[in-house]
Design a binder for these strands. Sequence first.
DNA 1: TTGAAAGCGCTAACAC
DNA 2: GTGTTAGCGCTTTCAA
Lengths: 327, 327
Amino acid sequence: MKDVAARAGVGLKTVSRVVGGEPGVTPETERRVQEAIEALGFRRNDSARVLRKGRTASVGLVLEDLADPFYGPLSRAVEEVARAHGALLVNGSSAEDPERERELVLALCARRVDGLIVIPAGDDHRYLEPEIRAGVATVFVDRPAGRIDADVVLSDSFGGAREGVAHLIAHGHRRIGFIGDHPRIHTATERLRGYRAAMAGAGLPVDDSWVSLGSTEPGRVTGAATAMLAGPEPVTALFAGNNRVTVTVVRVLAGTSRPVALVGFDDFELADLLRPGVTVVAQDAAALGRVAADRLFQRLAGAAPAPARVELPTRLIPRGSGELPPA
Amino acid sequence: MKDVAARAGVGLKTVSRVVGGEPGVTPETERRVQEAIEALGFRRNDSARVLRKGRTASVGLVLEDLADPFYGPLSRAVEEVARAHGALLVNGSSAEDPERERELVLALCARRVDGLIVIPAGDDHRYLEPEIRAGVATVFVDRPAGRIDADVVLSDSFGGAREGVAHLIAHGHRRIGFIGDHPRIHTATERLRGYRAAMAGAGLPVDDSWVSLGSTEPGRVTGAATAMLAGPEPVTALFAGNNRVTVTVVRVLAGTSRPVALVGFDDFELADLLRPGVTVVAQDAAALGRVAADRLFQRLAGAAPAPARVELPTRLIPRGSGELPPA
DNA sequence: TTGAAAGCGCTAACAC
DNA sequence: GTGTTAGCGCTTTCAA
């Protein structure tokens, strides 16, 4: 910038004005400055700008895994909102590791992102308290924050699961299995709670062997499903706790002779083209991201409402697998 | 930091040493500084650090659409490599709009990312010349840069498509349709070239009505497929130019009575569970990201080889749809 | 309309 | 081992 000023024969501040689009510069002067900028290939250094202004025009997004199809649309939605506000997105995957989440979040804070959207892996976010006090707007998505009071936007896991399981019950099932994510994860326990509520609501008992929480790794899920489908009194239907579980269960069921009903939480591409089509409880990942980002930018614009919990509804989409009668 | 120094009763530089993990500080002094840091909830401001050091420890990733399942694994792979080098990822979607790509890239440069990984939307990247000269390492992925000489990592679109089409020919097809992405996109034309090469190699003519390039929007693709399957001499097989086209074609074929063979470029989840399973030419999106990021960090480490083109092999995965005989 | 000086928070270089 | 000074590239303040 110094060089540009020298070449254009003007003061430093004049260049700053032109680059920043501030008023108060003669067209003629502006032309000279622009010329020097072109000639020197000058681009303003935003790091210096940030240092001075205190705002980075960037928001951090910490999620579990960028490669998971559930998070793609969510990220994209956050990005679009950020873009509308002139902000860039800095993001990272926690790989469902609380320590890695913490490192990532603190790294983002050190870079002074204006705001933070977090899909938490851990269950204790007190480490964020100083940051939030220091002015970093923070919104949690998909799962609530642990041990701090913060905005959270999530899907109605409890209600969605209850509706999905009730759907199976309505189609005559009485022995229904539940395979879900690790119990450390909020959505997993909420969905299990929904399952239990639906069973209890219909006066049905739940056998311990019908419930399996744990890693969504295919081997674990396959083992759980196979076990529930074996024995003299196998389950006649399965409820899958998220998209990865559902996909693995579909694979298992493709290999069984007797038809087994299935409802999965989360919609996924091509679910309608499988035979039978997979009945799902769909949540709107993009809406989750959009609502969270909107909330974030409200706060960045100065609004300071008390932290709130927003719960988005889910939608049951019958496609065949959930309407199969008990074998 | 000033406050920390005051509270600990030490000089500014000593705090800097402790925070930066530099040697040459008594354990006792270090303890006092740490204490002050805790008490004040101090976190180093990386913007200032960047300004001083000249490196941001961040890399920019510009792709077409974060929500596209093809880019998820690619982003994640880049992220992992970046993480191994202590860098964060700043990313954005160009939405296949050259102007938006340019804005995004320049915004990233203004923030002084150390390096840039770009999946180009446009075909003229001369606007990047000053940046590259200024030291921003740049690697293009999936498609080559336009009108500048830069590193590029891509899949063997030509060879993969040729192999896929040859596979259909080997199974007896002579009238084969090709539905691909917009001709502006490098991979689309390369795959078309592969198609033509396979047909020519087998001495088969190509009717103009068998080839359709354009948007991957479902309506357009459905129209193209339907047209090729109509008339007295319909195609007996289709080659789909990318994952989105393939998915739409699968939907169209699910509604036809007569069996039509299909090979798609790009693998996708559940392709094996459809009936018939979808034969694909698979590319390794994660490898694409990993190789590109490795190359980027080599450059950042000081290596300055001439820009090179790395082409990753594709793999034909027969699953049924590509082995159907002509109707 | 324009510019000079101060300073954002940090680290490199060089004292002590 | 520790502190002091200068300055990274920009914007803010205030004077011309």
